[in-house]
Design a binder for these strands. Structure first.
Lengths: 240, 240
DNA sequence: TCAAAAGTGTTGACTTTACACCCATGA
DNA sequence: TCATGGGTGTAAAGTCAACACTTTTGA
């Protein structure tokens, strides 16, 4: 930068850089659900000829007048009717050739939804839940995005009470443990798991029992705090 | 999406969405250095009239033909002459009004450099190292970005051998401990710190001693593995 | 009465923390 | 000889992992 250069106004800067307003930005949502002891991901048939027959994550271009999180919630709402889910930004992917339509940089979010609580508009069979373990290839770089989000969830699941977004309101400790096992891909010791959960103070005993189970029914619990749609507040930041 | 709609080619999609190619994307680098027991951040005087007098992070718009990481390295190289630095993506900021020039979404990276190893082009006094603790306000949302990057470094500093990027090639355990203390903002027990570091197997004893210290000289060490410029390889991902 | 899962504690291994003394050097 | 930091080990506390038996229910 030339020292003698005058300060630019924002307006002149915009004009001088107009050529750069030539990259599109999208968000892609990795929407996880959980059913029958398995993690699932909501995918849609790609509508691009280049990826004909392949499935892809739910995403869309960000509109000029919406911020990133708003765009993610819009996609969720449009595709699932869900409005009040937990959603978190994970990583931004910007390789030059990741999108055949041109330069599209995408911000990946994961979200966690109760797969049974809502009725998806699954009537058009372009939108389906896929078992995580069955997903081999996806359109674009979406498999990498999916894996990145899965890694992030695995890091967070023992730190923050995010899993309850995947479960119905009332659940047993067995169901909770099975969910942890599905996410982490390991088996957990029942006694140690219960001890760990009770230390975290995430759930409350609602004094009800399972019904319709072919064995001794377990107690039912609710999440004590449920991370849901983020508030309009600023991201937490340091007080430095 | 209409079921009957034909598949689009990438080309027709680009045309139909042409209005969306109307958001610029930038990268901002939070460049940390360390000197005299304090963390520092490299800042530049904002060249926007709206932020006249304020300092800002080093950033630039991403060019249509460079990927995000390439853009970050370009900024580092242009501003510091440094080429071989560790750099990591942290978060993407996309609030509607974060930039007065228009819609600019920015991807934040942190990088760690040896503040004394290189000579910055600090001759124009628009570019300076600032003590972290003295930074109160910055242009744009750069204070939030800075804090987010600092949080990330604090999370990672005990997990990954990133700190050595901030130190000269040879360093004593005291210097290393002081650096950890500056990053984490706490005091550490000397014996426990040394034990912990030696367990991590990050450094090697080079059989040299400090000189010119006004007390008993300590041994000097080198980093065993140095995280530097990322390779062209793909991001690590799960083998699922 | 059988099958299935619920519910529940203890022990040993390991990790983390707190803590103090003598040593080497330069001023 | 003094001031400064270098270098080092141990004990107690806390955390984590392994592990088994009795109970309740439905079929």
């Amino acid at each position: 930068m030339d020292k003698l250069q005058h300060l630019k106004t924002a307006e002149t800067e915009k004009i001088s850089h107009i050529d750069y307003f030539n990259i599109a930005i999208s968000v892609d949502c990795v929407i996880f659900g959980y059913d029958k002891k398995e993690l699932k991901v909501l995918l849609i048939k790609s509508d691009l000829e280049e990826f004909s027959g392949l499935w892809s994550l739910l995403g869309d271009l960000v509109r000029p007048n919406e911020d990133l999180e708003t765009a993610s919630y819009r996609i969720l709402k449009e595709r699932t009717g869900l409005d009040d889910v937990y959603l978190e930004q994970v990583y931004t992917f910007g390789s030059l050739n990741r999108h055949p339509s041109g330069r599209v940089i995408t911000v990946a979010y994961y979200s966690l939804v109760d797969i049974n609580h809502h009725q998806l508009k699954l009537t058009n069979n372009e939108l389906h839940w896929h078992k995580l373990n069955d997903i081999k290839h996806l359109a674009f770089d979406h498999k990498v995005i999916l894996n990145t989000c899965l890694e992030r969830i695995r890091e967070q699941v023992l730190e923050k009470p995010i899993v309850f977004n995947l479960l119905p309101e009332k659940f047993s400790l067995r169901e909770l443990q099975e969910l942890f096992q599905a996410i982490l891909g390991v088996n957990l010791d029942r006694r140690n798991f219960r001890k760990r959960i009770s230390l975290k103070d995430w759930i409350i005993d609602i004094d009800e029992m399972e019904t319709d189970v072919p064995h001794r029914p377990g107690k039912l619990y609710k999440a004590k705090v449920q991370l849901r749609k983020k508030q309009a507040k600023k991201r937490a930041h340091l007080s430095v």
